[in-house]
Design a protein around this nucleic acid. Sequence first.
RNA 1: GCGCGGAUGGUCUAGUGGUAGGACAUGAGCUUCCCAAGCUCAUAGCCCGGGUUCAAUUCCCGGUCCGCGCACCA
Length: 578
Amino acid sequence: MSEGDRLSELAKRRGFFNQTAAAYGGVAGFYTYGPQGAALKDNIEAAWRDRYVTREGHMEIDAPTVLPEPVFEASGHVETFTDMLVECVECGESHRADHLVEDHPESTVEDAEALPNEEVGELIADHDIDCPACGTPLAEEPVEDFNLMFETNIGPGSSSPGYLRPETAQGIFVDFPQWAEYARNQLPFGVAQIGKAYRNEISPRKSIIRVREFSQAELEHFVDPDDEPPLERVEDVEIPLYSVAQQQGEGSVKEMTVREAVDEGVVDSPWLAYYLGISKEWYERIGVDMDRFRYRQHLAGELSHYASECWDAESELGGDWVELTGFATRGTYDLDKHAEYTGEDFSVFQQYDEPVTVERPTVDPEMSYLGPEFGNAAADIVAELEALAERDPDAFDAEAVTVELDGETYEIPTEKTGFAVEEVTESGEHVTPHIIEPSFGVGRLIYTALAHSYREDEIDGDQRTRLALPPEVAPTTVGVFPLMDKDGLGERARKLASELRAAGLEVTYDDSGAIGRRYRRQDEVGTPFCVTVDYDTLEAETVTVRERDSTDQVRVPIAELPATLSGLRDGDITFDDI
RNA sequence: GCGCGGAUGGUCUAGUGGUAGGACAUGAGCUUCCCAAGCUCAUAGCCCGGGUUCAAUUCCCGGUCCGCGCACCA
């Protein structure tokens, strides 16, 4: 069995995740997290929130999953988040129109997706391309877009179309003016969101790695282009970089510190470097194996339309590299687009440290002259004069100013333009923030944490399966067992379990079968610690605490147990400290 | 979406034109003083639809889902 098969089997059997609605035949690309999986997901999201929101001082919001169509017209998703399809009338098969054209032997087109649909349709006709399935000519068939967004209607009727968001980010961008106001217009600030996103994938694959509904944890960090990240906090962190140069050259990953990566220009944006640094430590914290991890830079052709630089955090799963996180510089693209489509202000007024006085050339044309002289053209001439004053104030040194409009040349006496150079005091400027975006796929983090912590080893000659999950993210922190369910041990153990729950610990109680079987059960779901109530407990109020990975045991007084276990979970102490 | 392969209790599987057997797991009980022991009993299964047939879990067709390769992955 492959790694993926073993993991899927364990996931289903132990309640991490399973295919949704299997009783109805299942539906591709949808998975349900069971009790263990939901708990693991909660813990990973909490660790993310702790690192990327709380400790960075960012804010977290929660936007709707449905947004009206105009939002995605602005973001470009309606237009570009599509595949080109052509449908055969004869057999009903749909084909990728751009690929039919590219694959045709006589075709010289290499990137048909970049062409308009009509043009691709013409190419299909020109080359007499037939349906690959049944051979019917496709020349007459229209080339249509298949949009990967799920479409819906807001309210009754179809007058108000909407889409399920394909990324949580747009929910942050559309209300940017609100967040800027909340941040008292002080850049930089970050807005984070953990939530569901939806993509109607043509072909969902590989368990929960590619699904149609998934959780994202996204941070949109809005920065002034002049802002610098606090690089010193992570400058010594070693990060495995697989740059474009390395991908096209030796093909090997290069370890370097965050500082080196910036100084040597391997990572262009210091902000991205900063997030690569803190994220490497975070991945380790939730159980990603650093020997199966790398940061890979996007090649030029991979970059999305809005990004100038992008690095993916990738984990190795069953021999494949899978994207966990995209770290992208989105520039001002999204805010510009939403500003353009709404007419609202998506910028921030940045006050200078000190007001600056600048000389600004202005014009104040004498309309009583221009009007009669130039008639209909007068208004356009004024606009041109204003532009000229800003562009080339020296032009006003002469006796007359010449402007060209629609091929006509007009000469205006300089004295009629009201040209002057004014001293203006500016206290700041409007800045459209640049966006630094780390975008995490939660399901892939969960899958990686499981795959990378999966172990098969031997205890006293017996094989066991365990998940070496970090205690912080393990679904259950402690299993509580009576050594046997008699002589009052069960009662004492049940009481202890509820005491530990009251102390805020995630506890499982189990009294079935032999003690070893119960340990193995907890090993298999990654429970890091098990507490056993035995006969000595009744005498001395102590229990044994058993550690998952080493199977070592120590005796601990019950009175100290809540603090000890909390400390172990939170990483304040290690098992050896007890 | 294309091609290839697959689908039998919760899991892993055997097998069959006459409705299915095992292992593990699970539950009850016995046993058991710290790592999947043993014994007894119990629960539980042929993906869906159509066709062929007296009879289909089995053969054929279609679908759904899963895996792999291709494509896709803003």
